[in-house]
């Protein structure tokens, strides 16, 4: 997988299934909150996620990686979702069939892409590995 994305110390951390990597709990929490923000409790989940990111400024690199990625991508992803959906609705109007074709297709595709990426992130966090969201995830620090 994205082995090349891992920084040297992170790669060295290894991922033995019997002992969690340092910062793994926070990393898993970050990805879970990211997903909860998309699937269960929007906004509130993000608020908690953001608070965790601020609070744990000196957490282990694994945790920082996942906190930063999920915060950025929640913001950018949310923005892309909301702005274009609103734009389509505003431009097309609620009374036009194609508005709904576009809005529902757009929202479903972007939303489910974000969810799938969050699941990849969660799987990596649970394996004690760093993750970079494709396209809109911030660059990994080295």
């Amino acid at each position: 997988m994205n082995e090349q994305n891992a920084t040297a110390p992170q790669r060295a951390q290894g991922h033995r299934s019997d002992q969690p990597a340092p910062g793994q709990d926070l990393a898993v929490a970050a990805e879970s909150l990211f997903l909860a923000n998309l699937l269960l409790v929007p906004v509130l989940s993000f608020a908690v996620l953001f608070w965790l990111w601020r609070k744990h400024a000196d957490a282990p690199p694994l945790a920082r990686n996942h906190l930063k990625q999920t915060c950025y991508v929640s913001l950018w992803g949310g923005l892309i979702l909301a702005v274009f959906t609103a734009a389509f609705l505003a431009l097309g109007g609620l009374q036009w069939a194609w508005t709904w074709v576009l809005v529902i297709m757009y929202f479903t595709c972007v939303h489910s892409t974000l969810v799938i990426c969050g699941m990849f992130g969660l799987a990596r966090a649970m394996a004690g590995k760093p993750f970079r969201f494709p396209l809109i995830g911030p660059k990994l620090e080295t």
Partner: peptide
């Protein structure tokens, strides 16, 4: 189904 996906990726990551 969510669990299955995370499961599959988690196993391959480990």
């Amino acid at each position: 189904f969510f669990a299955m996906t995370v499961f599959a990726f988690n196993m391959v990551n480990r």
